[in-house]
Design a protein around this nucleic acid. Structure first.
Length: 377
DNA sequence: TCTGGGGTCCTAGGACCC
DNA sequence: TCTGGGGTCCTAGGACCC
């Protein structure tokens, strides 16, 4: 047995994961302080403006809970839950439509504040980031406090921070003391603090993998660490099987991705009611044109063009179908996106009603560089 | 009363080329 | 006539994440 971990885990790092608490709901509470302490749910479509706040019980139609306050969670409401089901649990909860422009603005503000403390940041979406603290002066406890203070000063919001030697453990750690928490973990804490958690607490073990593990009698991360690696390889394949073993032992050497280029952009919409491919043809055409127009705007804003265009359909039975086409050139205009999307739609046999239509731009290039044919000389 | 919208990555087969 | 092995690109689907 090797006496130290430094020989097999490489140079030791200090990585933070910072996660905003009930993010969208907390931003709304800044705007409506009178809702503090009440069950509030963010979700659904923008409703007709009326008097006062809309109650969850009055909501009609499709939609899910995007996020909710902790008092709403006390009723059993969860992200991703259908709004009708949420209304049955918490009929008096306040329902607010999402205001994504504001959430994005506040997001830029908290990330800029964190960058003042530590500049090496990996963006993980609107409400969370990884931060490399390896080269930053101070104890982990001090740095956690400074990060939280910087976020609070810039936005008025609280967050939870986990600091450990890698991204995998920090992601787990930041969940441990939510909300407004700090959790510091070393490799020596793994057996006592990480192994009792359910396997699904690992980022990358979703519902399917968790169910498959459960069928093997593997429920906790500790069970996974104790499982025969050969069995995992056999049941989950070389790549994922090996990763499962590593993850259970807290082994993770992934670097932070500081700059990331967009790989694809898409727009999709779920209809108010399922649409018939022929009887509702005009309505579907109008929706397709709208999606292409919005996607073209997104591309223009980012100065990008697509060499691949695809469509996504969700049918009334929730099955999903996609088709895409790669063009010999890059496109960005609404008309070109529409023509390519129509080519894709022609390859589909429609025998069910449609629930959702989406348009996707992939193989993105910057026009004038990657989009042009390479010169011969 | 079912189940949003925006992404990434992986796998796997076939076409095509060397 | 049959023997190859890579490599890349494209397409479709699926798992997972925020």
């Amino acid at each position: 047995m090797l006496p130290t971990d430094s020989m097999d885990s490489g140079p030791s790092r200090r990585i933070a994961h910072l996660d905003m608490d009930a993010y969208f709901a907390s931003v709304e509470l800044l705007r409506y302080p009178e809702l503090k302490g009440l069950p509030v749910v963010i979700g659904g479509r923008r409703s007709v403006p009326g008097e006062g706040f809309q109650r969850l019980r009055d909501y009609r139609g499709r939609g899910v809970v995007t996020t909710c306050t902790y008092p709403a969670r006390a009723f059993g409401v969860r992200s991703g839950m259908g709004l009708m089901k949420a209304a049955a649990l918490a009929p008096d909860a306040i329902l607010l439509p999402g205001d994504y422009e504001t959430y994005a603005r506040v997001s830029r503000a908290f990330k800029a504040a964190v960058a003042e403390v530590a500049p090496a940041i990996e963006d993980r979406g609107i409400d969370e980031i990884y931060i490399d603290l390896t080269e930053v002066e101070g104890t982990s406890a001090e740095l956690a406090r400074r990060l939280k203070e910087a976020v609070k000063a810039a936005t008025g919001l609280t967050c939870s921070v986990g600091i450990t030697p890698n991204k995998l453990l920090s992601k787990i750690a930041s969940e441990m003391q939510k909300p407004d928490g700090v959790t510091l973990l070393g490799l020596e804490d793994i057996p006592a603090r990480v192994w009792p958690l359910p396997a699904s607490a690992v980022n990358g073990i979703g519902p399917k993998a968790a169910a498959k593990l459960e069928a093997l009698g593997i429920r906790t991360i500790g069970d996974l660490a104790a499982a025969d690696p050969a069995l995992l390889l056999q049941r989950f394949g070389q790549s994922y099987g090996a990763w499962l073993s590593d993850a259970a032992h807290g082994r993770d050497q992934r670097p932070l991705t500081i700059v990331r280029e967009a790989k694809s952009m898409s727009r999709e919409t779920t209809f108010d009611r399922d649409l018939h491919p022929r009887e509702d043809r005009e309505r579907l055409t109008a929706i397709l044109l709208d999606l292409c127009g919005r996607l073209a705007q997104d591309l223009e804003r980012k100065g990008l063009a697509a060499r691949t265009v695809g469509i996504k359909l969700r049918f009334d039975d929730f099955s999903i179908l996609s088709r895409d086409v790669t063009l010999g050139w890059a496109v960005a205009s609404p008309d070109a996106l529409r023509d390519a999307a129509r080519d894709c739609l022609r390859r589909v046999t429609f025998d069910r009603r449609l629930r959702l239509l989406g348009v996707r731009a992939g193989s993105l290039v910057t026009p004038g560089t990657g989009g042009a044919p390479r010169p011969l000389f």
